[in-house]
Design a protein around this nucleic acid. Structure first.
Length: 292
DNA sequence: CCGTTGTAAAGTGAACCTAA
DNA sequence: TTAGGTTCACTTTACAACGG
């Protein structure tokens, strides 16, 4: 079983490490094992408990009251809350449920929550309201080390599969005038946003050519010549400043006048690429919808 | 009834130490 | 050098008690 350090717990639950320690001290809320050097190490059950606690907390329960409850009571209360009607709370509960399923590699539970989310929001709003926040929570989109812990991997693989099958279910492109090429350049590894963008574009009836991640620059040139897309959409999520991104694009991507570049991702926060390359900056999935 | 005061709970900040 | 641990003191908030 994987053990978590307190900062990871902070990430997963959104509760400050300091606060977690204080709760431990004042209420014995969660008493983790310690390393030989006295560092706290939390197990899956403890993470789940804290997720439940955070759910109750955001529903107006006092920490002192929560701390007095048994594990079973906490579970019961959280279960009741899932039938509440407040949008924010529902999202938060969904996210917590998904994190819980994820850390215990519980695919059926993940599927169950996934279906509930989709039923409620549809794929588009589910992505915005639940799955992006989830991925942010687990540090996936902004992860610095490109080796994801197994649980992140598990969750992102499931999500990818879901988006792909949703995309497959869409009718074929009707609008042949707009052809999009979607890809990630070498070094960019987080494919989910790209898959989601693919879904959005396809759902608007436009044609897409999906190349996925880690496409060598030589291959891109070949594809460009052959299929002549109207637009290229790509994401930059690995931390890198925009000047470096610019020079990479300038050096490696030879776009003619006829191809418009669309860029997005957490590393693209300014208008720099727009000024330098005339690129269209997508800072939110809704921007993409507007663009279409 | 309403403003004031007291108090406990909850969370935060800072200092200082040790481990990684 | 940074992350994590402990402790104390502080601020903020909620709420009950009080007195006019």
């Amino acid at each position: 079983m994987r053990l978590y350090q307190i900062t990871e717990l902070e990430q997963l639950t959104g509760i400050k490490a300091h606060t977690i320690r204080i709760w431990e001290k004042r209420y014995n809320l969660i008493e983790p094992d310690r390393t030989s050097t006295n560092y706290r190490r939390y197990n899956d059950e403890q993470v789940k408990k804290l997720l439940n606690v955070s759910t109750l907390l955001s529903n107006g329960y006092k920490i002192s009251k929560i701390a007095a409850l048994t594990e079973k009571d906490i579970h019961g209360k959280v279960f009741e809350l899932n039938s509440s009607n407040n949008e924010d709370i529902i999202c938060k509960n969904f996210i917590n449920d998904l994190v819980k399923a994820m850390i215990s590699f519980d695919e059926p539970a993940f599927e169950k929550t996934y279906s509930a989310v989709i039923n409620r929001f549809g794929l588009f709003d589910a992505m915005l309201n639940v799955f992006y926040p989830l991925l942010n929570n687990i540090g996936l989109l902004w992860s610095i080390n490109n080796v994801s812990p197994a649980q992140e991997h598990f969750a992102s693989c499931l999500l990818k599969r879901k988006i792909m099958s949703a995309t497959d279910g869409l009718p074929l492109a009707k609008n042949k005038k707009k052809k999009f090429l979607l890809l990630l350049v070498p070094g960019e590894l987080h494919e989910i946003s790209l898959l989601f963008a693919n879904y959005i574009i396809r759902s608007k009836g436009c044609e897409t050519i999906y190349l996925g991640q880690d496409v060598p620059y030589e291959n891109i040139s070949v594809v460009l010549k052959q299929i002549k897309p109207n637009f290229i959409l790509t994401f930059f999520t690995t931390p890198k400043d925009e000047k470096a991104i610019y020079s990479d694009i300038k050096k490696n991507l030879h776009l003619g006048e006829s191809i418009k570049l669309l860029v997005s991702g957490s590393s693209v926060t300014t208008q720099y690429l727009k000024d330098k390359l005339g690129a269209h900056i997508i800072s939110h999935p809704k921007d993409l919808l507007t663009f279409l």
